[in-house]
Simulated assay, not measured.
Amino acid sequence: MNDIVEQFEITFNQIHQHLKELNAFPKNDNFVELLQRSKLKHSVIRVHFDQLKQYAKLRNAIVHERISGDYYIATPHEDVVKALQRIKRTLDQPPEALEFATRSVLYFKEDTALSHVMEAFDQHGISQFPIYTKERAFSGLLTNDGIVRWLSQNHKNGRIALEDVCASDVLPVEKDRSVEFLKASATVFDLEERFERSLNENRKLKAVILTESGSPDDLPVGIVTTWDLIKVDRRESDED
């Protein structure tokens, strides 16, 4: 077999295997079908979708339209093989979720005064903070929307007393603040899978908190929101 064709086919088949894994080995393992499914869930595939779809056409021409022996109706250019190999290497070693997370994570304890948390919102321009118990167990995600909701429910004659109000007093008004946890070493595929699953379950995932062990009982080393996922697409596009 022509060396350049062999390199192309081997790399293409390895990418096909990755697509099967990303889709839990469905019965229909047609390359383009898997590509379409993966595009909806994973940034790496989304960025390279059109490119891989064209490579699939080339692969079909090589496999099904061979004229004779090592004479093919189409032969990939060396640059095409190199581009395919770059995509394959990205799938072999996808970026870590931590690369796209906000670090370092600001967090507070349940007994932190609400006035102090509000100052942090204003000072750092962050819209949400994880809250922990004294034993360092995750208690909930406190958001600026939640604080506004609590203030609207607790004013008297236009005045609000904050002297004795703590973060834990506000957490009960937080609505649908779904949070999940991942190991800091998890890949961007693991991260995107969490958000995709929550979407399929009609459950709004507000954030994924990254800890060393993936346990809620560990302090956060990074936090990823839906806004941070935009950075995934942008980086992949810049590297393409």
Rank of each mutant, 00 (worst) to 15 (best):
R159P: 08
V63S: 12
D233V: 01
N60I: 04
K183Y: 04
Q36T: 12
K53P: 00
Q128V: 06
I209G: 03
L141H: 00
V173N: 07
S237M: 12
D164W: 14
L40Q: 13
V221G: 02
D233L: 09
V81S: 02
E212H: 15
F31R: 05
R149W: 00
L199T: 03
A167D: 07
D228W: 02
D190F: 07
F8M: 02
K206V: 02
K88W: 00
D228M: 02
D164S: 15
D70L: 09
A61Y: 04
K57Y: 10
Q14R: 08
A137N: 07
V117G: 12
Y107P: 01
L205T: 01
H64R: 12
E6Q: 02
I209H: 05
R46Y: 07
N23E: 11
S104P: 06
Y72I: 01
M118N: 15
K183C: 10
E78M: 09
V5A: 06
A120E: 10
G140C: 00
I160S: 08
P220M: 04
F181Q: 05
A97M: 05
G214N: 11
L40K: 14
E193M: 07
T143Y: 00
L91A: 00
K82S: 12
G214V: 10
P130I: 01
E6P: 00
S115F: 12
L229N: 03
V173D: 08
S139N: 02
D176N: 14
D145N: 13
S198A: 11
A61W: 04
V5T: 04
N202H: 15
R203D: 12
L141C: 01
L40Y: 05
P172D: 08
P172N: 08
C166M: 13
Q14Y: 02
L84W: 01
V148A: 15
L162S: 14
I62L: 03
M1E: 10
F195Q: 05
L171E: 01
R37S: 13
E6D: 07
V148R: 15
L162C: 11
L58W: 03
A74H: 07
C166W: 14
R37M: 14
L52A: 08
Y55K: 00
S215L: 13
L19A: 07
K53I: 01
V221T: 08
S237W: 06
H155V: 09
D176L: 10
L162Y: 11
F138D: 02
R66S: 08
V63W: 02
A184M: 01
Y55M: 14
Q54M: 09
T187F: 08
L182S: 03
Q7D: 13
E192G: 06
A56T: 04
I126E: 06
H16Q: 07
V117E: 12
H155K: 15
T143V: 08
E21N: 11
K156L: 14
L84E: 02
L98M: 11
E163H: 13
R234D: 11
E135M: 08
